[in-house]
């Protein structure tokens, strides 16, 4: 009987030990933060430039479809984008395809607008509004594309759409300049497929959805994209702000290192165990 040497043990390591190591790794790096600058990627710059070239009072639709589970990625993104829109004096409306996202995104928008220096944004409905929750995104986009007040009827506070100051002079999505999809799920294709043609599309996905985004960036169906927390971090850097993004990035970086380390270790163990078997 071959004795259980360290390598065979390592190959069959209890997965619960791996889980504990990962947890501790993240906890340690959250407790002892240090600074590391980001590389600005071209899709992030694309989105930043597109928002930066907006004129005051241009209308932007933010499609916010995320819920608490992707908060770590989507919240820094949404906050950064709203801050930038306020800085440009643009008007914006939010719409959610997720019931939970309606409350969350409204709460965040209230938080960001209240803490901004621009008093115009302090009153809800003046420069921004939340159009509420739509169950079927395709139907909603097509509907809003032809008639906003008919498709959405009332905003999240129950005000009829045509009585909102922020939407004065806007009849449909056609009167918007841009839509930014902040999302953890596959909502982007719907915006690309069913939006009015004049609307440019920006994308703020979680990292996992970004892979699909490259295809649309390449085909110019997307003007720019910020990828997950990293993208939010880049966007913050472009705006010269410091937000939540900075705090989390190190813990993430080193969890990547940890995983690489263990993949290496696993392979080493496999090779060594094979060699030991060959000798025996």
């Amino acid at each position: 009987m071959q004795q259980q040497n360290i390598w065979t043990k390592l190959i069959r390591v209890d997965r619960r030990i791996l889980y504990l190591i990962l947890f501790l790794n993240i906890a340690v790096f959250l407790m002892f933060p240090f600074k590391m600058p980001a590389t600005i990627t071209s899709p992030a710059r694309g989105l930043y430039d597109a928002v930066d070239s907006l004129q005051p009072n241009d209308l932007v639709m933010i499609s916010s479809n995320w819920s608490a589970s992707t908060m770590a990625e989507n919240q820094p993104q949404l906050e950064a984008i709203i801050k930038h829109l306020i800085r440009k004096g643009a008007r914006f409306t939010l719409v959610s395809n997720e019931a939970q996202s309606r409350d969350l995104s409204k709460r965040i928008a209230v938080g960001v607008t209240q803490s901004s220096d621009n008093a115009e944004y302090h009153t809800y409905g003046q420069k921004w509004a939340h159009l509420g929750f739509v169950t079927d995104l395709i139907a909603a986009i097509r509907g809003m594309g032809s008639n906003l007040s008919e498709a959405v009827k009332q905003d999240v506070e129950g005000t009829p759409i045509d009585q909102l100051p922020v939407l004065q002079g806007a009849k449909s999505l056609k009167d918007y300049k841009m839509v930014i999809d902040v999302t953890p799920s596959g909502t982007l294709p719907y915006w690309i497929s069913y939006r009015p043609p004049n609307l440019i599309v920006g994308y703020a996905p979680t990292s996992v959805m970004a892979a699909e985004g490259f295809t649309y960036l390449d085909s110019k169906q997307l003007v720019g994209m910020i990828t997950g927390l990293k993208g939010a971090h880049e966007y913050e850097q472009l705006m010269g702000e410091t937000g939540l993004g900075h705090k989390f990035i190190n813990a993430i970086s080193f969890s990547h290192v940890l995983i690489l380390l263990f993949i290496g270790l696993g392979n080493l163990a496999m090779i060594m165990a094979r060699r030991a078997q060959g000798e025996a």
């Binding site: 390591v13 791996l18 990962l22 608490a68 589970s69 939970q100 969890s255 993949i263 696993g266």
Partner: peptide
């Protein structure tokens, strides 16, 4: 929701390993 979602981080580690 957030707790279940973040479990994936652990699973991704064990699956990769």
């Amino acid at each position: 929701d957030a707790a279940m979602f973040s479990l994936i981080a652990f699973y991704i580690f064990s699956a990769a390993y």
